[in-house]
Simulated scan of single mutants.
Amino acid sequence: MPKITYLVPDGTAHIVDVPVGQSVMDGSVRNNLPGIVAECGGSCSCATCHVHVDPEYAELFDTATDEERDLLEYAEDVDERSRLSCQLIVNAACEGARVVVPDSNG
């Protein structure tokens, strides 16, 4: 199981085993990490799971869809690293990937 590091709004880092095929959002929600609200449960319809993906890990995930990019327009603290964690599906190559939950989520 790949280990994903979540840097949450209070500045702490949490390393979580996330099964291949699950989303980065699932890993956070199942471990009760603060900051990723996931109001829609992962259906890509709310943008409450906004994260920043460290640049060196961005290519490990599929490219953002038009729907995801549209939703990110409604999130705060959006930049070129912004993604919805419900759309970041973990694969074996994601070992060590790191995401930052923006302060605006917490």
Rank of each mutant, 00 (worst) to 15 (best):
P2C: 09
P2G: 10
P2F: 13
K3F: 08
I4Y: 06
T5W: 00
L7F: 13
V8D: 08
D10C: 09
G11T: 05
T12S: 15
H14L: 04
H14F: 09
I15M: 12
D17K: 12
V18R: 07
V18Q: 13
P19H: 09
V20S: 06
V20E: 15
G21D: 02
G21I: 00
Q22R: 14
Q22I: 07
S23K: 06
S23P: 15
S23T: 15
V24I: 14
M25T: 03
M25S: 07
M25E: 10
D26L: 03
G27L: 04
G27T: 11
G27V: 10
S28Q: 11
R30Y: 11
N31D: 13
N32P: 07
N32I: 08
L33C: 04
L33W: 00
L33Y: 15
L33P: 03
P34H: 01
G35T: 02
G35F: 06
A38M: 06
A38K: 00
E39G: 00
C40P: 03
G42L: 01
C44S: 15
S45G: 08
S45L: 12
C46Y: 01
A47V: 08
A47R: 04
T48W: 00
T48M: 01
H50S: 11
V51I: 13
H52I: 12
V53D: 14
V53Q: 09
D54F: 14
D54S: 02
P55N: 07
E56D: 14
E56H: 00
E56N: 10
Y57D: 14
Y57S: 07
A58T: 14
E59I: 12
E59H: 14
F61C: 01
T63M: 08
T65S: 15
T65D: 13
T65H: 02
T65I: 00
D66F: 08
R69I: 08
R69M: 15
R69E: 11
D70M: 05
D70K: 05
L71Y: 03
L72V: 05
L72W: 04
E73I: 10
A75E: 03
E76C: 13
D77C: 06
D77F: 10
V78L: 11
V78T: 09
E80C: 13
R81Y: 04
R83W: 04
L84C: 02
S85Q: 00
S85V: 01
S85G: 10
S85E: 04
C86V: 12
C86D: 12
C86E: 13
L88V: 10
L88E: 03
L88G: 10
I89D: 13
V90G: 12
N91P: 02
N91W: 01
N91C: 04
A92C: 06
A93H: 09
C94S: 15
E95T: 01
E95D: 13
E95H: 03
A97L: 08
A97M: 08
A97F: 06
R98D: 05
R98Y: 07
V100P: 07
V101P: 03
P102F: 13
S104N: 03
S104P: 09
N105I: 01
N105G: 00
G106H: 02
G106Y: 06
G106I: 01
